[in-house]
Amino acid sequence: NRMHLVCPMNTSPYVDPQKSGHSIWEEFSMSFTPAVREVVEFAKRIPGFKDLSQHDQVSLLKAGTFEVLVVRFTSLFDVKERTVTFLSGRKYSVEVLRSMGAGDLLNSMFDFTEKLQALNLSEEEMSLFTAVVLVSADRSGLENVNSVEALQETLIRALRSLITKNHPNEIAIFTKLLLKLPDLRSLNNMHSEQLLAFKVHP
């Protein structure tokens, strides 16, 4: 009897209790599909991504889409006001979302957002960082790890070069960015657990 779905990739966190779990799932899927398509389009524009095998392109996207979305949609999390903006444009306070069952994942999303925003990255830096997030050679199910690793290294070198150029006195930003990668993995794992719980108890 779930009444709420506290993911901002919905138009609203409120779920019609009259609807079946399947139709709730279908609506949720329709809400986040455009965002996932945008991630795929972004991936296609990463130089070298299209040269990976089809299998590895899908594996990287399957494993990394949530993490890319977290980076792309930090703007939905207002750290000062402690609100989350859903797809409808309506904002919900952390307290309200907590009362709907949001827990550790919400807190961790705010922590991540706050730290990432504090780095004041340009659009170009953010885009390159997002490419690094997506092209990770340690994702499961890859068939050609060496190719992914080579692309990953190229992207990391490019990111380091860009950060060094833009912030000559703040090279620590590059280190801080790389340290965001395990944070994103942790968020991804927490999110997967929520999805599993939702699927088992819609």
Partner: peptide
């Protein structure tokens, strides 16, 4: 329920979105 991405239908969305790219690569 071991694969949340597949359960979400994510793989299907990703494959369809990649399709143009894949067809291009096969040619």
């Amino acid at each position: 329920f071991s694969d949340p991405a597949s359960n979400l239908g994510l793989e299907d969305i990703i494959r369809k979105a990649l399709m143009g790219n894949m067809e291009e690569k096969q040619e």
